[in-house]
């Protein structure tokens, strides 16, 4: 039997033909691609919460922070070899960043094509955080490259002593550009999380009118706590509390 006329397509679609796999359907649709962005965003957000908490050890002296950094390499031993946990986490994060970035790029290109002509009057209805998601994301992507070169590979770090993150952090934040880049990026992060967290809930379909307010408050709190937590370190170095 040949293909059925398309007028019957919907009624019989469940029984005939083969649909592409769920993942293909998701990635090809705008809704599914946004869901991929939401999930990868939540993965990065969870990481950031632990990263921020780990950073706060800087206030308890070089021993605390450097000990914590060394311990991170031993997580999972003896099941995992030394350093493996860190590499697994790095791979997962890289995957999340790539998925988030590729989806954002593809969706943004589509969005710009869908609205080729602007209106005479630019309305400023949406919040600043909402309007700066794309450029904020670009700033954060560039920052991640800088941040890895500065404090992971130590390529651009003014001190660059492996195994001594405390001293490297202090050295980096003591320079005007090191502290400056970090502070700007953390403000961008706060804005990105503020819209991103609520938007992820909406995209994944977990938002509803009763939860909306709570989710917005959670997004604001999360953005505020992350920004303040991350900013506390360079500020403490700049005012000399951490040295």
């Amino acid at each position: 039997m040949g293909p059925l006329p398309s007028v019957f397509g919907m009624a019989l679609a469940t029984g005939t033909g083969r649909r592409p796999s769920t993942l293909t359907t998701l990635w090809r649709s705008t809704v599914g691609k946004k869901a991929a962005m939401a999930v990868s965003g939540v993965v990065m957000l969870l990481y950031l919460v632990f990263h921020m908490l780990g950073n706060l050890k800087v206030f308890f002296g070089p021993g605390e922070l450097n000990g914590y950094a060394a311990w991170l390499r031993t997580v999972g031993e003896p099941f995992l070899r030394y350093g493996w946990f860190l590499w697994i986490a790095r791979c997962a994060l890289l995957a999340a960043v790539v998925v988030h970035g590729v989806a954002a790029y593809q969706l943004s290109r589509r969005d710009l094509r869908a609205r080729p002509q602007k209106y005479l009057h630019q309305r400023r209805q949406a919040s600043y955080a909402t309007r700066t998601m794309r450029w904020g994301g670009v700033i954060l992507a560039l920052f991640i490259v800088w941040h890895i070169l500065d404090l992971t590979t130590l390529t651009v770090n003014p001190r660059g002593e492996p195994g001594h993150p405390y001293q490297n952090i202090v050295a980096s934040f003591s320079t005007w550009y090191g502290g400056g880049i970090y502070c700007v990026a953390m403000l961008a992060l706060g804005l990105h999380v503020r819209h991103g967290f609520w938007s992820a809930a909406q995209t994944l379909g977990v938002n509803n009118p009763r939860r909306d307010r709570t989710l917005k408050i959670c997004a604001n709190l999360l953005a505020l706590v992350l920004t303040i937590g991350f900013l506390s370190v360079p500020v403490a170095v700049m005012i000399g509390v951490v040295h």
Partner: peptide
């Protein structure tokens, strides 16, 4: 169909 018609994606701006 919505995607095929060339509409953009939702960025939850609420406009």
């Amino acid at each position: 169909t919505m995607d095929a018609e060339g509409f953009g994606g939702c960025t939850n701006t609420g406009e």
